[in-house]
Amino acid sequence: MNARRLENRVAIVTGAGQGVGEGIARRLAQEGATVVVAARRAETGEPVVESIRSAGGQAVCIVTDVSVSESVDACVAETIRQFGRLDVMVHNAFMGGIPHKLEKAQIDKHWTPMSRTGVWASLFCARAAMPHLIASSARPKGEGGGRLILITSPSGVEGSANIPLYSPAKAAQRAIAKSLAREWGEFGITVNCIGPVAGSPALLTAFDRNPALQQAIEARTPLGRVGDITDDIGSVALFLASDDSSFVTGQTIICDGGSFLGL
């Protein structure tokens, strides 16, 4: 039997109280990582932790508001206090996405929440994690390797007709990843993005309300379905977190069943 790929590694996953973040947290824990479920509310984070533990994994919940730099700093500091290291930082948390007309969009209502949780928070997470990711990469081969993973969206590449300001927030994350990939290469840290289309609670609720939406998405997707948060999206995050991807940096993996083929 192969050793688990993230044995002894410590990962923080923001927005892990539900959806894609939850799936990533579960998948990393399955491969041996100690996972910090960084959730805005303990009511969502703690059940994920309990579920991971009951499956034999290791996890803790640290309540974190990613839009506040001090909260992100405190999450990382508490992770180091409890576990002594941080190898993988996954920033997934995101707030916003209200459909709007661009010409009538209001900065405070339609843009700021997405900018704060998408763009600012990516920089907060990167900044707070940086010294610990450097330390992880300095460990002997096979015992560490700093990884920053940002969860973007296919809309960050192709734009959005329904939520136009969602796209620039997600596009920024790809540019940040490329920039930090260049900047941190000397330390051996890799920085990558995942652009998922997955069965998050928000999307599944939308399907319930509008079955035609589900049919439309499945029809345009070569694999004919949306992704599973753990087996499909979590597994891509696992690849990017593991030693298997040690020569991959500055990239975006679109994980959507082949719906978007424009890269």
Binding site: L102, G159, K170, K178, A181
Partner: peptide, 26 residues
């Protein structure tokens, strides 16, 4: 992307992709 220019690169790419959203809506 640009080393030491992460926020600037983010701005450039945000603006570039917002163009696509605007094109789709308008």
């Amino acid at each position: 992307g640009g080393a030491c220019y992460a926020p600037q690169a983010a701005l450039a790419e945000s603006a570039r992709i917002l163009v696509k959203s605007a094109a789709r809506q308008w």
